[in-house]
Design a protein around this nucleic acid. Sequence first.
RNA 1: GGGCCGUUAGCUCAGUUGGCAGAGCACCGGACUUUUAAUCCGGGUGUCGAAGGUUCGAAUCCUUCACGGCUCACCA
Length: 496
Amino acid sequence: METEDLNELMSQRRRKLEEMAAAGTDAFKSNFDRSHSIEEIKKEFDVVETGENSGKDVDTAGRIVARREHGKASFIVIDDGSSQIQLYLTINNLGEDNYRELLGFDIGDIIGVSGEVFRTRRGELSISVREYIILTKSLRPLPEKWHGLKDKELRYRQRYVDLIVNPEVKEVFAKRIAVIKGIRDYLADNGFVEVDTPMLQPIPGGATARPFITFHNALDMDIYLRIAPELYLKRLMVGGYDRVFELNRSFRNEGISVRHNPEFTMLEAYQAYADYNDMMELTEDLIKKLARDIVGEEELEYQGIKLDLSKPFKKMTMLDSLAEVGGIEVSFDMDIDGLKSLAKENEVHVDKGDGKGTIITELFEKLVEANLEEPTFILDYPKEITPLAKSHPDNPELVERFELIVVGREIANAFSELTDPREQRKRFEKQVERRDAGDEEAQFFDEDYLRALEYGLPPTGGLGIGIDRLVMLLTDSASIRDVIFFPHLRPEKGRE
RNA sequence: GGGCCGUUAGCUCAGUUGGCAGAGCACCGGACUUUUAAUCCGGGUGUCGAAGGUUCGAAUCCUUCACGGCUCACCA
């Protein structure tokens, strides 16, 4: 199969590889001792002035990304992922045969070089090559140097090529890496410990979503990929951990869009003796810190919308926001038919089994959430859609829950956790009723979780942050695929 | 799932009314000892996403399919 899709360029490279082999050269070396990374060279030799020789040799390596031939003296640019540097090669330094061989290497090949660092007359820090070695032969041509790789499908499927030729992609992922590290550092500084809980769960819980189902052969049973780590993390709180977090993947078997990938990265953090107000403070502080550290300032722009993260985030209850932003008066005192007709007026879809809480939430999402730009905490969600949160003392229809909305998107979600096992049992039973009525996203009944609650969960605040969406916000990325190295795509056909 | 758009050389893209498949970069050959999108001379390397159909003739028109993008629906 492989030979069939060989084009001329790939054939040429394979021929070169065979010629190397025939000459006794191994084109896939096992190691190379560097004295410096390219970034280190740039730092250390920054003081070398235009036209000046440093008098010092370095050993470094990288991928050939450009070549400029000038007869008996030429230039090659190599890139090691940290930075790029120009190589200067002359017949005088290398001799005719070696000079020709080094120039004959292809763009994409990975080489090691030794030589003196100097700065050219044009001011470019360079290495005057004395010795070189092929480390890895590249058998496929890279995309064009000027336009890079544009085709989105190729960029997502072959992210390795995207990363080689499109430098801005690396910047986005550098920020993603920094966000994740920043969160871990922040939480560690605040006394949280990072834990791992099961991704393969016999009962998928902690969120309202359809799970992926797989099968355990030895146990002869269905098993689920987790939709959230929540119930296991709260079991750990029962076990006596005071502050825990998990920053890892969850999986939801739902539609794929610019905001949804079937597997996504989520932070969940739980703090004992805290409630949702404490989690609100933590969320705001964390996000402001990430903006400062990673974007460099608290004013940023997302898809043309200017956001000022330096101001205190706004706070509104869901019901108030429907009045203030949505322009409709809604309350749980209205009867269900009144809410249904209100939904109809506003072109909000209502399912048969939907109660007041669901309809109000749908109205909120349509009339309010989509229109919120500046960071806004929305407080006090309907109990009906939130089976794991503590009841609100002022209104039995509500729970102590908030979401942080930025540019119409949910960035964080938190509650005062429901700790009363008797009420949790009733809430689970309601979910089972919904599931029996055909709601595939209703939550599962988890008897062991109730047992854990019966031993006693301290008052606990819980927080979830969607990392991919947060990174989108901080990197001004329009699609979740731009912040996930390998986003989910349909398999390529004609493969295998 | 619906709608719209796209798929042509390794990459980025043109391709007129249906009439021999094009450019730039990359690549190959040649010139050039400080260039940096190097330059100059010569060379087009292709299953026009796939399969059918219409036609003397299809990259171009029609049908179906695949993959992707945007969007609506769905969904935390």
